[in-house]
């Protein structure tokens, strides 16, 4: 399978990339790691006239400490996110989720920002980013703006990033020392989750933050369960009771992997498991 013909631009600075993007507008597609875009191009689900490769812009890579947050460059690979000391210390949930993205080869190429900008509701990084209250730094020819996680994911494959804008980095407020677990339910080892739950907890349990993967057109928070868990003790019965509310307000798809009510059942069961493991109680 071969993509349609396109012109290829390889800018070496963000300014060059932004000017190419404003010149070609709707006809252009941004290439980050390409692990989702290339299959889309090969299956000819998308046929851009111009592909703008961000691979040559070094400033978009890397992870740094910025006081009360860590900042992850959009072109940082899943492999680097998974193993980075700052991520393990201050946002363990992201490390756990990055470890579950596809397979080793894909994690070597696929990028943190690319996956979030792609906004596949079955992608593994949206739910943990939402749970951790990530802030998305987006740059356009008009300047830079920061979008909160609650406003970033708009719909299926749709984010707050405008046509002439590029996601440059993601700020993750520090959750230092919080326990975390990403519970992913799959049919085939390296595939997308049918449902997954991203849970991170402070103590056992002062506060809980829970993101749901593939339970609607965007990643979702299990807010009722979070509220029920705050101040609760991490006993199996208590956590499972709180997890009974995990599917509230969700609108999961029905497809060959499972019906909507089955996914809601999974969300409740997996939330219980994820929280217990995050709290170190299972």
């Amino acid at each position: 399978m071969i993509p349609v013909k396109f012109d290829y631009l390889a800018p070496t600075s963000l300014e060059e990339a932004l000017s190419a993007l404003s010149e070609h507008g709707d006809d252009a597609k941004i290439l980050a790691g390409g692990q989702s875009l290339l299959p889309v191009l090969r299956m000819r689900l998308n046929a851009p006239e111009v592909v703008i490769d961000l691979g040559g812009i070094d400033s978009l890579r890397g992870i740094r400490d910025d006081g009360d947050a860590i900042v992850i460059g959009a072109m940082t690979t899943h492999h680097v996110v998974r193993d980075h000391e700052l991520v393990r210390e201050h946002a363990l949930l992201l490390s756990k989720a990055a470890a579950e993205v596809a397979d080793s080869q894909i994690r070597h190429r696929g990028t943190f920002g690319g996956a979030l900008a792609h906004a596949d509701p079955a992608g593994d990084l949206g739910a943990p980013a939402l749970a951790l209250g990530a802030q998305f730094v987006i740059q356009g020819s008009g300047g830079t703006r920061t979008v909160e996680a609650d406003d970033f994911f708009v719909d299926l494959f749709e984010t707050a990033i405008g046509d002439d804008e590029i996601l440059t980095e993601v700020r993750i407020p520090k959750h230092t020392g919080w326990g975390a677990h990403y519970e992913k339910f799959v049919r085939v080892a390296h595939q997308w989750p049918i449902v997954a739950v991203a849970a991170t907890v402070k103590g056992s349990i002062d506060e809980a933050r829970i993101g749901l993967t593939n339970m609607g057109s965007t990643p979702l928070r299990a807010r009722a369960t979070e509220a029920a868990l705050a101040g609760a003790s991490a006993t199996e019965d208590g956590v499972r009771a709180a997890a009974e509310q995990a599917a509230e307000g969700t609108n999961p798809p029905t497809d060959l992997n499972g019906a909507a009510d089955y996914r809601q059942h999974l969300a409740r069961v997996l939330t219980g498991r994820a929280v217990l493991r995050a709290a170190g109680a299972a």
Partner: peptide, 20 residues
């Protein structure tokens, strides 16, 4: 699977121009 700059990648999911 091949190695690109020392790590494994699926070479059907990388453009030749990306390997420049």
């Amino acid at each position: 699977t091949v190695h690109l700059n020392g790590t494994s990648v699926k070479s059907c999911n990388v453009l030749a121009v990306q390997a420049n």
